[in-house]
Design a protein around this nucleic acid. Structure first.
Lengths: 203, 203
DNA sequence: ATAGAATTTGAACGGCTGGTCAAAAATTCA
DNA sequence: TGAATTTTTGACCAGCCGTTCAAATTCTAT
């Protein structure tokens, strides 16, 4: 059912390689439907070997979540704190988030699909960090409204959910080597969010 | 682990009630992590009883997918074929899609998360109907560009993915009884997509 | 009331799951 | 080389999974 990835013998087994292989399998088949045997087969080893590098199945999932957050959080924080105008901040934030979604798309799919399988305090920590991440976007929009750059009728929370939804959805359809690069897609999204579709506006 | 829903004894067991309960459990815990015992418990019956109404677990999943498509497809088709201007069409399409995402949110979560667990030709049929559904949005945007109402630089495919991502994401955060109704949220989304965030534009 | 049909039960099944572990193999380094 | 260490094996376990089915129950209509 799960074909072997083209990694047999090439790479040394480690937490990193396990997590990478698991992310692809979880993204393709779901966390619950991916067995440790599937992962072992994909890596060209036996199930038991995995347990030398990893405590259990859930830890693999935890490591995927941490990887996503490690990549995503810090650059966004820097964008928010930089001293450029809000519209440019938003464009950079969209560009950053789109890039993460595009080149870590298995991890992103897992991140937004499988949190339900995290248990205990770790799941709550993820929820909290997700909220913080979202709040950065909210801040940028509020800033833009306060500066008179964004329309005052905009609800920052709804707009944030809209923008993040737009970017996150990318991992559902983006395939490397398509018509557009992640950078170009991010530009399209920025134009759409900032300028809208209409040629002219009345407000 | 899975608490009983407040349905015990109240409703008669049927395909419909099974599908409804399953949708909530699948949405909350995932298809793979939801056992038939979980569903039976939630409905106040034993596992065996389910098999009188349903062929197997995958059929339950299939019925959820069909339910979503049955609700979503036809109204959108009518909007596309109606003789109103593209901007208004888009607003109505967004409103329609948002409404579906909001008041069938368990089913929508399952629809976009668990297709991987469908097997055989049915999965391909769903993919095809999904694509057709997306193409309706593309059509509206192309129409708007052709009519000179939408900006010519817009890529209809990317814009469609963006809009659908925005709406679909709703099922991840929307809770009935929040600050805004689905109708209001749809209006926000329409404004965002059509007019953008910026107060003024140069193009 | 009672026959007949519709529905539910509860036990049983084979298979797969995540996890464990002593022994074997591979690697490292003096 | 060869001893010490790191890594992998492969067999094993207990438990849960989806599914089946004969028997028991409940419902329906006369």
């Amino acid at each position: 059912m799960v074909e072997k990835l083209a990694e047999k013998g090439k790479v040394r087994l480690s937490q990193q390689t396990i997590v990478a292989a698991a992310a692809e399998l979880f993204a393709r088949n779901g966390f619950g439907a991916t067995s440790l045997d599937d992962m072992a087969t994909a890596l060209g080893v036996t199930k038991g070997a995995l347990y030398y590098h990893v405590k259990n199945k859930e830890e693999i999932l935890r490591l995927i979540f941490l990887q996503v957050l490690t990549i995503a959080e810090e650059p966004l924080r820097q964008i928010v704190e930089s001293k450029i105008d809000p519209a440019e901040k938003l464009a950079q934030a969209i560009s950053h988030h789109t890039a993460v979604a595009a080149d870590r798309s298995p991890q992103m799919i897992v991140f937004y699909r499988e949190q339900v399988h995290l248990t205990g305090p770790f799941s709550r920590e993820i929820s909290h960090r997700k909220k913080t991440y979202e709040s950065y976007f909210e801040q940028i929009i509020e800033e833009g409204i306060a500066a008179g750059q964004f329309r005052a009728e905009v609800d920052p929370k709804i707009a944030t959910f809209g923008i993040l939804g737009m970017c996150n959805w990318l991992s559902q359809w983006y395939k490397p080597g398509g018509t557009y690069t992640p950078t170009q897609i991010a530009q399209f999204f920025s134009q759409l969010v900032e300028g809208g579709l209409l040629v002219s506006r009345t407000s």
